[in-house]
Amino acid sequence: MVWIAALFLALAFAVQWRAAARETAANKGYPPQGRIVDVDGTSVHVLIAGTGPDLVLIHGASGNVRDWTIDFADRVSDRYRVIMFDRPGLGWTGRLKGKTGAWNVKSESPMEQAALLQKAAAIVGIDHPIVVGHSFGGAVAMAWALSQPKETAAVVMLAAVSNPWPGNLGWTYTWGGTSFGGAFLMPAISAFVPDSYINTSVESIFAPQNAPKGYAEQVGAGLILRRESLRANAQQVNSLRPHIVKMSKRYRGLQTPLEIVHGDADTIVPLSVHSEPLSSQVEGAVLTVLKGVGHMPHHAAPGAVEDAIDRAAARAGLR
């Protein structure tokens, strides 16, 4: 029994050492691109570009602000002040108090994430923004509008989570969101997941389109593979549905201009489950369906996303 315990400890040490080494390399290779602001003890990474009406961009699961900087931010920074946030635990934004630790299973709800980013927005002087949310970021965008309806100029949802879905999210999120998964599974993934798996995962997110060449490197895939980021992402996604159930009951009272852009080939966040119902839940919502487009419309059909943002700005009286 002693040798078994010694072997287990040696293996655990090797996993943690390897994970720490990869994290160090990721942190060095992908430093913050913007400014770090302190919000009640939580560090929030914000990147700002351009001038004009304020346009907040909120990334999805397993993401960070670099997803916007590959191409899309440049497309709109000529007419908007583009403000990009890393969500809690991802990129260079820290986690909220009480949410950290290998054995912890508490995660930041969309409402908590929106509140954090709203406080950061106030610090950098954001006023009456259009809020854009992609995928999981859409849940945060809706939470932003629900909690600050008068201060939110408009919301633009991109292949975004908005309504309860049937079934589960697969074993990675189910196990990753548990204390056991956080303590053991996430470090093992952080330490040993190969580049080939990362590239395959990226391609599956973009399907049926191809990912931009070098996307995994440009977006800093190593940042999401850090242990705390993996835990944050798994816990947030795994615990999301009950929050969506509560939020969705409040949509019909929302008066904020809403533009929705969604591809009909999106199998990750299906159009029929999320955006189609949302378009009838919010009065005046405009749904744009992109034929043959998957889960990354701001890469696959950026012009359509720009048009939706410009419409939202016009409806809000900002253009």
Results as ranks from 00 to 15, higher is better:
Ser248Met: 11
Ala316Ile: 13
Lys249Arg: 14
Gln33Trp: 12
Lys99His: 15
Ala159Ser: 03
Leu96Cys: 05
Ala216Pro: 07
Val56Pro: 02
Val15Arg: 01
Val219Lys: 11
Glu283Met: 03
Thr174Ser: 10
Val46Glu: 06
Ala313Ile: 10
Leu7Val: 14
Val202Asp: 11
Lys249Trp: 05
Gly60His: 03
Leu254Phe: 05
Glu306His: 05
Ile126Thr: 15
Ile260Tyr: 06
Leu9Cys: 08
Ala5Met: 14
Ala73Ile: 08
Ala316Leu: 13
Gly52His: 02
Thr256His: 06
Leu116Arg: 01
Ala301Thr: 15
Thr93Ser: 15
Asp266Tyr: 09
Leu287Ser: 03
Asp310Met: 06
Asp54Gly: 02
Glu151Arg: 02
Ile224Lys: 03
Gly294Asp: 00
Gly133Trp: 00
Asn163Gly: 01
Arg35Ser: 14
Thr288Gln: 07
Val155Thr: 12
Met111Gly: 14
Asp40Ile: 04
Lys28Arg: 12
Thr178Tyr: 00
Ala188Gly: 11
Arg95His: 14
Leu254Asn: 12
Ala183Gln: 12
Lys119Ser: 13
Pro297Phe: 07
Ser229Glu: 09
Ser109Asp: 05
Thr152Asn: 01
Ser248Val: 15
Val105Trp: 02
Val245Asp: 15
Gly294Met: 06
Gly294Ser: 04
Pro302Gly: 07
Trp92His: 15
Met1His: 06
Arg311Thr: 04
Leu287Asp: 09
Tyr80Thr: 08
Ala73Gln: 08
Asn104Arg: 10
Lys28Gly: 14
Ala265His: 02
Val286Asn: 11
Arg226Thr: 12
Thr42Asp: 05
Trp144Ile: 07
Ser109Ala: 09
Asp307Cys: 08
Thr42His: 01
Val124Asp: 11
Met296Asp: 06
Ile205Glu: 08
Asn168Ile: 10
Ser77Pro: 06
Thr178Asn: 01
Asp307Lys: 14
Val15Trp: 01
Arg315Asp: 15
His298Gly: 02
Ala114Gln: 07
Gly91Val: 13
Asp195Asn: 15
Ser201Cys: 04
Ser179Trp: 10
Ser147Ala: 05
Ala221Ser: 15
Ile224Cys: 12
Arg311Ser: 00
Leu225Asn: 14
Asn210Thr: 13
Pro212Met: 08
Gly214Lys: 06
Asp40His: 12
Lys119Tyr: 13
Ala49Met: 09
Gly125Ala: 06
Glu259Cys: 10
Gly101Glu: 06
Leu290Asn: 10
Ala49Leu: 11
Leu57Ala: 02
Leu146Asp: 07
Leu116Val: 10
Ala313Cys: 10
Lys106Pro: 00
Met296Cys: 10
Thr51Glu: 11
Pro187Lys: 09
Val2Gln: 14
His45Gly: 11
Ala314Cys: 13
Pro149Asp: 01
Arg75Ala: 09
Val282Phe: 02
Val305Asn: 01
Met111Gln: 13
Ala49Cys: 02
Ala12Phe: 06
His59Gln: 09
Gly181His: 05
His243Pro: 03
Leu271Gly: 02
Asn210Glu: 11
Ala183Thr: 09
Ser62Thr: 13
His128Glu: 06
Ile36Met: 00
